[in-house]
C-alpha cells in the first residue's frame, strides 16, 4: 500500500509551516523524519492524520483521496502513536489496547470476543502480556509506550505514525522500541517516525526525509541522506559519521 502526499501546504491559516510537500511512503518500509525543533515534523504528522486540515494539495491512500473519508475508515488504515499522553481515569492496559479496536466497531457497539482476542494478540506481539491487568497510569513510561504501540496495532493499520517514540525513555527501552519498529516493518507495516537522533535511522535501516526551512531538504536511504554536511546544515553542529561493528553512527565533534 502507498501513502502519497501531493503538492501540499501544511500549517495554520495565519502561519504556513511547510510548503510544496511531496512524499511517497510505502508499507514494509520505515521512514525517519529528522529536522530541528519546530521544523514541522509534528505539523506534518497532524496533517497526515487529518487533525490539521491541509491548506493546499492532497493526500492519497492507494490512489484514493482521503479528504472525504470519515475518522473510522481512516483509522482502519493509519494508526498513531503520540508523544505525550495523560490518562485521567484508571483504565487497565488491556482496556487501553482494546480502544484500538474502536475503528472496527459500529457506531454504538463495543468490543466483542474477536476484538479481545486481537487485543491479546497485540500484547503478545510486543511481549507485554504480563501488563494486561495493570493500570495504565501506574506502569513505567517505557511500558506505556509499548502499550500505546499495542493499541495502534489493534487498529490493524497499514501505516503507523510514531511521533518521537523514544523520547523520555531510558536507553534500554529506546532500543526495545526500535527493535519493535524493525519487527513491525518486517511484518510489512509502513512506519513513519519522527526522531531527534540520526542514529535511529541507521539502526532501522530507514528511509530518511530531512525537513528544513519550510520544506523537504533531502530524502532517500539513510546511508545517502545522513552526511556530515547535512547534519551541520540543519543542526549547526559538526558531526563525524563512523562505521562501527558494521553499522554507521554519528559522533558529535567539538565537544
Amino acid at each position: 500500500m502507498e501513502l502519497k502526499i501531493k503538492n501540499a501546504s501544511l500549517g495554520y491559516r495565519r502561519k504556513v509551516v511547510l510548503r510544496n510537500i511531496d512524499l511517497e511512503l510505502l508499507t514494509g518500509q520505515t521512514t525517519c523524519f529528522i529536522g530541528k525543533n519546530g521544523a514541522g515534523k509534528t505539523t506534518l504528522f497532524k496533517s497526515i492524520l487529518g487533525i490539521l486540515p491541509l491548506l493546499d494539495g492532497e493526500i492519497l491512500l492507494d490512489g484514493k483521496n482521503i479528504a472525504a473519508w470519515n475518522r473510522r475508515r481512516f483509522a482502519q488504515k493509519v494508526a498513531y502513536v503520540p508523544q505525550a499522553r495523560s490518562l485521567p481515569f484508571p483504565f487497565t492496559v488491556f482496556e487501553v489496547v482494546l480502544f484500538g479496536r474502536t475503528a472496527h466497531l459500529g457506531a454504538f457497539s463495543s468490543p466483542g470476543k474477536a476484538d479481545k482476542l486481537i487485543a491479546e494478540d497485540c500484547l503478545e506481539r510486543l511481549q507485554i502480556r504480563y501488563l494486561k491487568d495493570c493500570l495504565f497510569t501506574q506502569i513505567s513510561g517505557g511500558e506505556q509506550q509499548l502499550a500505546i504501540v499495542a493499541r495502534a496495532l489493534a487498529q490493524q493499520p497499514a501505516f503507523l505514525i510514531m511521533d518521537e517514540p523514544t523520547s523520555n525513555l531510558d536507553f534500554g527501552n529506546q532500543i526495545k522500541i526500535l527493535n519493535q519498529v524493525n519487527k513491525l516493518k518486517n511484518d510489512s507495516l509502513g512506519i513513519l517516525m519522527a526522531t531527534h537522533s540520526p542514529d535511529h535511522a541507521f539502526m532501522c535501516d530507514a528511509q530518511v526525509t530531512v525537513i528544513h526551512r519550510e520544506g523537504i531538504r533531502k530524502q532517500g536511504n539513510c546511508n545517502q541522506v545522513i552526511t556530515g554536511e547535512i547534519l551541520r546544515e540543519i543542526y549547526d553542529v559538526d558531526v563525524s559519521i563512523c562505521r562501527i561493528e558494521n553499522r554507521k553512527t554519528c559522533i558529535p565533534l567539538n565537544i
Binding site: 487529518g50 483509522a75 493509519v78 499522553r85 480502544f99 474502536t102 475503528a103 466497531l105 468490543p111 493499541r151
Partner: peptide, 17 residues
C-alpha cells in the same frame, strides 16, 4: 464505549476512529 476512548483526549480519540 466511545467515552472511554475519549479519555486520551480528542485528538487521539479521532486517530482511533
Amino acid at each position: 464505549w466511545r467515552l472511554n476512548v475519549l479519555s486520551f483526549g480528542e485528538g487521539e480519540a479521532r486517530t482511533l476512529g
